[in-house]
Write a protein that binds this DNA or RNA. Structure first.
Length: 254
DNA sequence: ATGGCGCGCGCAGCGCGA
């Protein structure tokens, strides 16, 4: 099974890239973030014509997550239970024998801002929820834009980024709390090239210079991590005209 | 890297992302 996640930064704009990518890489499951579209405008017909079923939790202008799968996904949940949040950032569903959770973690804007504290509260609620989900679903995959670079090796210039949002200790502590639940960072199950990132600023030719961060992740429960045979970041879509600023991340399971 | 880009909204220029 091939699982993938991609922050597309507007599904409407990126739909041609998405269609090409589905045809080329043929994932079984793809989690999308920042669709930035209402459900009524979700391009379901195009996605179905590519051979995928889709669930979408969308809103106008901001956020929005979708779950594409070759087979129908069941038992959808579109929020962290008990966490009051108007923003569409979560979509969980069951695909075959696997529970899949698509996440768009808040950005946090800047350390100390209201949005930063919302991010920390959101992550605390996520940690508590996933602790329960791991008990319910031994085969659990949590994919998405976490907006956290877990370690300095996930940052092109740790000195410049030290203490900033996406890298701050409070955020990294919460990422480690997810790992402490037993979840494994699929990318780090394998040897990887230095300078592996999943996001590059549109400005300053950051992609060409590889000034990036690794903030998009696939976390796997122990039972799924045992079955994981590869994990890669696919930089090809980032090289296209009008790219998303994020690259897809792909994990392969036996 | 820190203004510099790209998105939505809506028709100018701002809020937001990371």
């Amino acid at each position: 099974m091939k699982l993938a996640t991609w922050n597309v930064n507007s599904l409407k704009v990126r739909l041609p890239h998405l269609m090409d990518w589905l045809a080329t890489r043929q994932p079984d499951v793809l989690c999308l973030q920042e669709t930035k579209t209402e459900d009524a405008n979700f391009p379901l017909a195009e996605i179905e014509s590519a051979g995928y079923r889709a669930l979408h939790a969308g809103q106008k202008t901001y956020n929005g997550v979708a779950l594409l799968a070759r087979e129908a996904a069941t038992d959808p949940v579109m929020a962290i239970p008990g966490f009051d949040d108007a923003q569409k950032r979560v979509l969980a569903a069951t695909v075959g024998d696997t529970r899949v959770i698509c996440l768009y973690v808040p950005n946090g804007q800047s350390v100390g801002s209201d949005k930063y504290y919302y991010k920390l509260d959101w992550l605390d609620a996520l940690i508590a929820w996933l602790a329960e989900e791991l008990k319910r679903y031994p085969r659990l995959a949590v994919l998405g834009d976490y907006n956290i670079a877990p370690e300095d090796r996930d940052v092109h210039d740790p000195g410049v980024w030290a203490g900033q949002v996406l890298v701050s200790e409070e955020e990294r502590t919460r990422f480690r709390a997810l790992l402490a639940l037993g979840l494994k960072d699929a990318f780090r199950l394998f040897d990887q090239p230095e300078g592996s990132y999943s996001w590059w600023d549109y400005r300053m030719a950051a992609f060409r210079r590889n000034l990036g961060l690794r903030i998009d992740h696939i976390l796997l429960s122990p039972a799924l991590a045992e079955r994981c045979t590869a994990c890669e970041i696919d930089t090809a879509p980032r090289k296209l005209e009008r790219p998303s600023d994020h690259a897809p991340v792909i994990a392969l399971l036996d």
